[in-house]
Amino acid sequence: MTINAAASQQKHPGGKPALELVCPAGTPAALRDAVDAGAHAVYCGFRDETNARNFPGLNFSRAELEDGIAYAHARGAKVLVAINTFAQAGREDLWQRAVDDAVAAGADALILADLGVLAYAAEAHPAQRLHLSVQASASTPEAINFLIERYGIKRVVLPRVLTLPEIADLNREIACETEVFVFGGLCVMAEGRCLLSSYATGKSPNMNGVCSPPSHVAYREEADGALVSRLGDFTINRFAPGEKAGYPTLCKGRFEVAGRPFYVFEEPTSLNAASLLRELVNAGVTALKIEGRQRSRAYVRKVVSDFRRAVDALGTGGEPAAAATDALSDLSEGSRQTEGVYRKTWR
């Protein structure tokens, strides 16, 4: 038995895990932390506009990606490379090169969103495993099966707007694996089709890989001690003295509609579906995605190891440790967590 196979066996006792844990790696150090903490797979991106977490100080050079893949593979973990923004007109070659380089580096899968980039990858690298990014906004069997037929995608990352019964239905009707978000930031809009951030800042998630970018955030303290958070030229929230203030992500802001100030789109909650793992397995889900390539190494270590314990408990027929759920509640962005739409609380 080779070292790799031994490591792999050690990581997945009894073979395939009940759920594959796909973890964020914003930096090479975070990649190593995530792998060490028990990630079955990590996802990362190049240090440019080809990925949807294009923040200063994050992401990978070509050489770093190769090193990261070697590190992960030696420990039985996979590396998925996210090239999940939409290629900019006139600069398409940057996206094509990202595809070529990720394939050359030995990526286990590419996570793509742009139909043009998908078509390129499928044609230029027919043997490469492709995943459909959540940014592609494919939410029906018709759309997903079409993309499977046309580009050979093997897995689809589902929008964070589907309920558990909808996910179960979908899995019965599609011919590929599904991956769902279980922890971290929660997009309330159809992913990949939201221009709110660029409307306020000029910087686009789809084209520049940034949503509500820090470069356009400002805080202002008012005479009464209230803290106002702004994005571009717009006030996103106002916190009374003593109220816990949050980052001005546009869709988590407080606005006024019909004279009433409230969280019009979504409260500043973050997603935690740790209590739903059994139901996600039953719904036919293959992989769990943890959001947060922009988060700290300590965060990654904590979340990954807690979720790994929960997933292992599932695999041995036990219940996912309730302890994981409790410990994780300290880590979310706002003070509150939600199981998202999975429980159908929105409808």
Binding site: F86, A87, W95, A119
Partner: peptide, 30 residues
């Protein structure tokens, strides 16, 4: 959306502003 695109592929159709068409690779594919 991609549901309608899947249904229309192979026929003659137009693409609306809700489908992400950002570059020539995508235009060629569409």
């Amino acid at each position: 959306d991609l549901t309608a695109l899947a249904r229309l592929a192979g026929r003659r159709f137009v693409i609306g502003p809700f489908v992400n068409t950002y570059n020539a690779l995508t235009v060629k594919e569409l």
